[in-house]
């Protein structure tokens, strides 16, 4: 089962090392981890996607809370959050494939951000499942590189962590 966990941490050196070390040490499986600053420059937000049962999710939450540099930890309800990932996909293609690929990108509401004689680079920001679908649709062509961020998420409505 996937859990999305939002963590507010002090924005200072060594915090990410502590947190990633914690996961390795305690054997927690992390699907993705995204870090960035927040509205407060002293605080960073880490969004985690954790794979595991409720026991694992509880342990992750508790161990994170135990860290001195962790200010807040919230396990987010999958139904009540907006989730986004960003992906860049570079596809190698022949001239006659270009039209098909552009069609797929249009339907998926992605964007062509770079083009050369032999390649196209597609950008898309969406739910992780949609990103998976885009990659799947492009896979019959020659995908040469994928760069994908971890999931970030915020609660819907007025709720905040």
């Amino acid at each position: 089962m996937k859990h999305t966990i939002s963590v507010l941490v002090e924005n200072k050196a060594g915090v990410l090392a502590r947190i990633s070390g914690l996961f390795a040490r305690r054997g927690f499986n992390i699907d993705s981890l995204a870090v960035g600053t927040t509205e407060d420059k002293n605080i960073s937000r880490i969004t985690l996607l954790v794979d595991g049962d409720d026991y694992i999710a509880e342990q992750v939450t508790k161990q994170l809370n135990k860290q001195i540099d962790v200010i807040k930890v919230r396990k987010l309800d999958q139904e009540e959050i907006t989730r986004r990932e960003l992906v860049l996909v570079k596809v190698k293609m022949s001239a006659d494939q270009r039209g098909e690929i552009i069609d797929i990108v249009k339907i998926m509401q992605g964007e062509i951000v770079d083009i050369s004689h032999t390649t196209l680079t597609v950008e898309m920001s969406d739910k992780p499942e949609k990103i998976d679908l885009l990659i799947d649709l492009l896979s019959p062509y020659n995908i040469v590189e994928v760069a994908r961020t971890g999931t970030i998420a915020l609660q819907k409505g007025a709720a905040i962590v």
């Binding site: 026991y55 508790k62 809370n65 135990k66």
Partner: peptide, 8 residues
């Protein structure tokens, strides 16, 4: 005193 010990 350490909540992480409870239920571990």
């Amino acid at each position: 005193i350490d909540p992480a010990e409870i239920g571990k």
